[in-house]
Simulated assay, not measured.
Amino acid sequence: MEDSDDDEVYLETASDEEELGFSSASMPKLQFRNVKSKCRWDEEMGMAEVIEKSGKMWVTTGIVRGGKTYSSIEETLYLMELGALDLFDNSDRSISLIEMYEKVAGGKSGCCWELFEVYRHLKSLGYIIRRHDVAWSLKSVRSSHNPIALEATEESSQLEEMGSKVELCINKLFGELKISDVKPDFDIYLPNSRFRKSSPGDPNFLLYLSRSNPPSRAEIEALERQCDGIPLKICLVTEGRVSFFSFDKVELPVLP
């Protein structure tokens, strides 16, 4: 099924009053809104299905599959903190912030409290963030390939197969992800008013939350092998403070 182009539609129709932007990296203040987005939490997927959309945030938030939009646990909780989203379960019972905090603190749905703090920090500064290697839509997978080549049946079949693999990746990522896996956590894009989920381009850098302080050489080398030339940044969270750093290779002079 073809993905809907929700990211572009909502950029055109949303009012300026709904734009979410913050100058401080601290916890965003709850904002009371007359109109909120509505989502339904899927415990098995570890994601929320968006039932009703309101505001511009969906231009850079959520993934689109089969015409539906889903938000990860960190995206969902962040929007709940802003007062921009109401969350319900399958019985239409309202899910509270406390319940979602407990899920994140318990390492549910491929997230942990430190990862959420990193997400919140960067999102409040205007960065565009997605889970590493998770396409926003299958259109974004298609747009990364030569459109002329797609005219060939063989190439089209290969792309369809790739789309199926992306779907499988989504289910595995949000349902079974182990936080201890040594792989980048987020793909990070700089603030960009022209951003489109359907053609996001390469991220500006990849981000990995170090589970040790400092990260081991083996960790760094394993991560760099997965970056394909995209810059890698390491982050640490210490008592709520988020720090970022990167490593450069330096050749020391040979002493006589």
Results as ranks from 00 to 15, higher is better:
186 F>T: 05
94 S>M: 08
154 E>Q: 07
80 M>Y: 10
178 K>H: 07
120 R>K: 14
219 E>H: 11
255 L>N: 09
142 R>W: 01
47 M>S: 06
48 A>T: 05
220 I>M: 14
153 T>R: 06
194 R>E: 12
55 G>Y: 11
235 C>R: 06
189 Y>W: 15
13 T>L: 15
62 G>K: 04
187 D>V: 10
247 F>M: 14
234 I>S: 12
78 Y>V: 07
183 K>D: 00
156 S>V: 00
242 V>A: 09
129 I>D: 00
180 S>G: 05
51 I>S: 10
176 E>C: 09
1 M>I: 06
159 L>W: 03
26 S>L: 08
224 E>R: 15
69 T>S: 05
101 Y>F: 11
175 G>M: 09
174 F>I: 12
19 E>D: 13
73 I>P: 02
149 A>S: 06
113 W>K: 13
186 F>G: 06
232 L>W: 07
241 R>A: 13
97 L>I: 04
151 E>C: 06
106 G>R: 04
201 G>L: 00
49 E>M: 10
62 G>W: 02
173 L>K: 14
1 M>C: 07
135 A>Y: 03
157 S>H: 09
76 T>W: 05
104 V>A: 07
112 C>A: 05
61 T>R: 03
227 C>Y: 00
132 H>T: 14
179 I>Y: 02
3 D>K: 01
124 S>Y: 00
233 K>L: 13
225 R>G: 00
248 D>A: 15
138 L>R: 03
189 Y>F: 11
66 G>D: 12
212 S>A: 04
7 D>T: 11
200 P>T: 09
59 V>E: 05
203 P>T: 11
64 V>M: 04
250 V>C: 10
151 E>N: 12
52 E>L: 07
195 F>R: 03
49 E>H: 04
221 E>Y: 04
171 N>I: 09
90 N>W: 12
221 E>D: 10
14 A>C: 14
157 S>C: 06
239 E>V: 02
92 D>E: 06
118 V>F: 04
232 L>M: 12
133 D>Q: 11
228 D>V: 02
214 P>K: 08
221 E>M: 10
70 Y>L: 11
19 E>Y: 13
165 K>R: 13
140 S>Y: 04
225 R>D: 02
141 V>M: 07
77 L>I: 00
208 Y>K: 13
210 S>A: 15
29 K>I: 13
143 S>H: 09
151 E>R: 14
25 A>S: 14
82 L>W: 14
245 F>P: 03
99 E>I: 01
163 G>V: 02
139 K>H: 13
255 L>M: 10
52 E>F: 13
42 D>Q: 08
215 P>D: 10
111 C>A: 15
207 L>G: 08
54 S>C: 08
121 H>V: 05
10 Y>I: 14
187 D>A: 07
195 F>I: 08
204 N>E: 12
89 D>K: 05
138 L>W: 01
46 G>M: 11
148 I>H: 10
133 D>H: 09
13 T>G: 01
162 M>A: 05
127 Y>T: 09
220 I>E: 03
69 T>I: 15
12 E>T: 06
29 K>Q: 12
63 I>Q: 01
142 R>I: 13
22 F>K: 15
136 W>S: 01
193 S>W: 15
205 F>L: 10
68 K>Y: 00
86 D>Y: 11
116 F>L: 14
17 E>V: 01
